[in-house]
Design a binder for these strands. Structure first.
Lengths: 162, 162
DNA sequence: GCGGAATACTTGCGCGTGCAACTGGTTGTA
DNA sequence: TACAACCAGTTGCACGCGCAAGTATTCCGC
């Protein structure tokens, strides 16, 4: 084991994080595709379904799901074509638009989310002791606060002023 | 807060993991692009540079970096065009091919990796107490073992027989 | 040692995404 | 009121990727 720059412990530390992410993504995507839902579309529907009025501003949604504005435009296009979401004008700002889940979209996420959560339990949360999981989450929360501002764009008025 | 299926704690637990991943990816990609390296190409070069002889079988490499065979073929094509890697025939199996880092490729990763590690320190490892980081890594190792078999394809002879 | 199944890589094709340019709407300044 | 800077969302374009089909080689049963 050469004390090489290429073998830095920090490199393997994020490597671990990334590999876990890939692995989980893969498993979860498989299950979601049984419902005809790519992961990104599932996440958008989920976030809409959780929001008051089932709606969110396009730009807030884009920030939450880490998608570019253009990417989100087309994603919502696809959802709209399938009748899972629709757009609504923003009364206070005529530039803006809301994305809104339709009842059908809501039914679909609620159906898909059950198996989804089961898989999370099987491949992630269930593999760890409760205390272990709590420790991981608390650590990740710190990191998220640093690297992913706007994770909760549009959820709290205060968040906008950060 | 409705005790809704959509607000399951496990959902927010992976959400956290995924958001951290996105955030880190974004920051790191920015730095790598200063060296003209997309993250996937950096990772491939890094893994090659760390391997004995600077070489790895295409299929092992694909498994390690979670890329499809086709995807890796083209990624190595790009590296080859830039003179950062090349292919070598496998003497024992004429179907197979090795990807090999060139000296120039090695110079580039070694140059890029310094800033890369600095950013990891700043946005991940440095944000956590040593014990905290150790706990996270130990937990993630368990998860990886479950969800990402083949994370070390081609590194140990035993791994091939799983 | 012959024929079929499995394996290692490559290629054609379609799709989702980011980036940059564009349209229309809003806010600030004088 | 007029003008400029800015902002929200959409569209054109190029690119990287997965999937499935194709080619070449190796492995296995008989």
């Amino acid at each position: 084991m050469a004390p090489n720059v290429l073998d830095d412990a920090r490199l393997t530390a994020i490597g671990l994080l990334f590999e876990v992410h890939d692995g989980l993504t893969r498993r979860l995507a498989e299950q979601l595709s049984e419902h005809g839902l790519p992961p990104a579309e599932f996440e958008v529907l989920l976030r809409l379904a959780r929001s008051p009025g089932g709606r969110l501003r396009m730009s807030d949604l884009a920030a939450q799901v880490s998608l570019s504005a253009g990417g989100l435009t087309r994603l919502v296009d696809r959802l709209e074509r399938r009748g899972l979401a629709e757009r609504a004008a923003c009364p206070t700002d005529r530039r803006g638009a809301f994305a809104v889940v339709t009842p059908e979209g809501r039914r679909l996420v609620e159906k898909a989310v059950r198996g989804h959560v089961e898989l999370i339990e099987r491949w992630y949360t269930g593999l760890l002791e409760p205390a272990e999981l709590a420790a991981v989450s608390s650590a990740l929360r710190k990191v998220r606060a640093a690297v992913h501002p706007g994770a909760d764009a549009g959820t709290t008025p205060a968040a906008a002023s950060l």
